[in-house]
Computed example of a mutant assay.
Amino acid sequence: MKKVRIALTKGRLEEHAVEIFKSIGADITELEDKGRKLIFKSENEQFNIDFFLVKAPDVTTYVEYGSADIGIVGKDTLMEKNKEFYEVLDLKVGKCRFALAALPDFNLDEGYNRKKIATKYPEVAREFFRTKGLDIEIIKIEGSVELAPIVGLADAIVDIVETGSTLKENGLIIVEEICPISARMIVNKASMKTKKEEIGKIIEEISKVIS
C-alpha cells in the first residue's frame, strides 16, 4: 500500500477534515494529540497516510508541486488560484458564501465615479464585477475588510460571510450574494496516476460519508 500525503488547512477546516477521516476509519490519534509534531502518521489495514497542517494558500502549493498528494482547502482559496490540480470532491462542510457588502446608502449603479472595492480576494471580486460589465478599483486588504467602507477607504467590500453578524455589528448590509463556498478535496495530477488505487479508495470512502 503506497503512502498518501495529505495537506490539511489549519483551523476550522482542520476540525471538519479530521472528523471526516475518522469516520472512514483512518487512525487520527496523532492528529488529536499534535504536540509539536509536523507530520502525523495514520497507518492501519485500510489506509497509509501522512497528514500535515498548513495555511490555506499553502495547501494548493504543496499539492500543485506534488509534496502532498491530496489537499483539503476552502473553495474561496481555489477561486483565487490557477488550477494546476484536480478538484475532486465538495466535502459539504465549512459552508459559507462570498458576498458584496456595504453601508446601507451604497448604490452600485449610482454615480459616475469608479467604485472602490476592498477585499482579501481580488480575483473573486474582479470576476464578479466583470460579469456585470462594471469597471471597479480593487483595494487589497489583509485584515478586517469591514473597516474599509466605514472609514471611507472603499465604497463596498467583497468578503466571506457565514452568519452576517460581523457585518450587522458594524452597520453593513449584504448588497448581493456572489456564490456559496465550502471545503473541497484537491488531488495532485501526477499522484492521481501513480497512486490511483490508494487515492481512489479515499475518494470513494469519503464520498459515501458526505452523501
Results as ranks from 00 to 15, higher is better:
Met1Arg: 04
Lys2Ser: 11
Lys3Arg: 15
Val4Met: 07
Ala7His: 05
Lys10Trp: 10
Gly11Glu: 01
Gly11Tyr: 04
Glu14Ser: 07
His16Val: 04
His16Lys: 10
Phe21Asp: 00
Lys22Pro: 05
Ile24Lys: 12
Ile24Ala: 08
Gly25Ala: 06
Gly25Gln: 06
Ala26His: 05
Thr29Phe: 12
Thr29Met: 12
Asp33Ser: 09
Lys34His: 01
Arg36Cys: 10
Arg36Ala: 11
Arg36His: 14
Lys37Glu: 00
Ile39Gly: 04
Glu45Cys: 13
Ile49Met: 00
Asp50Arg: 11
Asp50Asn: 13
Val54Gly: 11
Val54Phe: 14
Ala56Val: 04
Pro57Asn: 09
Val59Trp: 08
Tyr62Ala: 03
Val63Lys: 10
Gly66Gln: 04
Ala68Tyr: 11
Lys75Trp: 10
Leu78Asp: 00
Asn82Pro: 05
Glu84Asn: 15
Glu84Val: 14
Glu87Asn: 12
Glu87Pro: 09
Leu89Arg: 08
Asp90Pro: 05
Lys92Cys: 01
Val93Ser: 10
Gly94Glu: 01
Gly94Asn: 03
Cys96Ile: 05
Phe98Trp: 04
Ala101Trp: 02
Asp105Ile: 11
Asp105His: 14
Phe106Ala: 01
Glu110Phe: 13
Tyr112Ile: 15
Lys115His: 06
Lys116Ile: 07
Lys116Gly: 09
Ile117Ala: 12
Lys120Asp: 05
Arg126Ser: 15
Glu127Ser: 14
Phe129Glu: 01
Thr131Gln: 13
Leu134Ala: 07
Ile138Asn: 11
Glu142Ser: 13
Gly143Gln: 13
Gly143Ala: 14
Ser144Asp: 15
Val145Phe: 03
Val145Trp: 02
Glu146Ile: 07
Leu147Glu: 11
Leu147Val: 12
Ile150Glu: 09
Val151Ile: 15
Asp155Gln: 10
Ala156Trp: 00
Thr163His: 07
Leu167Ala: 09
Gly171Ser: 02
Gly171Gln: 02
Ile173Ser: 02
Ile173Asp: 01
Glu177Asn: 04
Ile178Asp: 00
Ala183Ser: 14
Met185Ile: 11
Lys189His: 10
Lys189Cys: 06
Ser191Cys: 13
Glu198Ser: 09
Gly200Asn: 05
Lys201Ala: 06
Lys201Cys: 03
Lys201Gly: 06
Lys201Met: 09
Ile202Trp: 03
Glu204Gln: 13
Glu205Trp: 06
Glu205Arg: 15
Glu205Ala: 13
Lys208Phe: 06
